[in-house]
């Protein structure tokens, strides 16, 4: 193994090349104001069949409840330690939608997670207007599979956290200084065109992506 490493690197090092010019990197920024960013983000998301709702600090739980009911979701997987998790416990418990905390290691409840969860909710670290993408940095409190396993994934997004481009988000949020074990861009519900180039949704991940934008 180490022998292969040495051989490969030796062969690569043996090639002497003139130093190319220094790569001029640039951050791709757009002059979009807040409204334009929200607008662009919502348009991109709608184009890939994500559902975007503009809601507010006071009404998002109600809106969420209404949306989940309309989709027939009987339960909601959530991150109990997050701020929005606490709010949900206070405001959604009497709604008839069962709140299920993701507070165990996946191995201890894999089958239930895979087979019985109707919907999930997560926060996000922001979004990208240009491509209509959510930035998720899963962590101890809000594990990775929250955004992948249940057929409906709901996301809370604060409008001021929408960046114009991916490179702007990386730059302003200082990603290079430290990233989580797993970082994600999510740009719509799971989909595939592998059968005769016909789009089908909900292949492996969520079939519905619901975004609640809070100004």
């Amino acid at each position: 193994m180490n022998e292969s490493r040495r051989q490969i690197l030796d062969r690569l090092r043996a090639v002497s090349r003139e130093e190319g010019g220094v790569l001029q990197r640039r951050v791709d920024r757009r002059v979009w104001n807040q409204d334009e960013k929200v607008q662009r983000f919502a348009e991109c998301m709608s184009a890939v069949r994500a559902e975007v709702y503009r809601t507010s600090e006071v009404s998002w739980v109600n809106d969420l409840q209404r949306i989940l009911k309309s989709k027939g979701a009987g339960n909601l997987l959530y991150a109990p330690a997050k701020a929005h998790g606490k709010l949900l416990r206070e405001d959604l418990s009497s709604s008839g939608i069962e709140l299920v905390p993701y507070d165990l290691e996946v191995e201890r409840w894999k089958r239930r997670l895979f087979e019985q969860m109707d919907a999930s909710i997560t926060g996000c670290r922001g979004a990208i207007a240009e491509t209509g993408s959510l930035i998720l940095w899963p962590d101890e409190d809000e594990p990775r599979l929250l955004s992948l396993i249940p057929p409906i994934h709901c996301v809370l997004l604060r409008a001021e956290q929408i960046y114009s481009t991916f490179s702007e988000a990386i730059d302003i949020q200082g990603w290079a200084d430290g990233m989580p074990t797993n970082a994600l861009l999510i740009s719509g519900p799971s989909k595939s065109a592998d059968i005769a180039q016909v789009l089908a949704y909900g292949v492996h991940g969520p079939k519905s992506l619901v975004i609640l934008i809070i100004p």
Binding site: G132, L185, S190
Partner: peptide
């Protein structure tokens, strides 16, 4: 414009 998932893995 982008795929549904862009998955960046840093470790176990």
């Amino acid at each position: 414009p982008i795929t549904t998932y862009f998955n960046m893995i840093k470790g176990p």
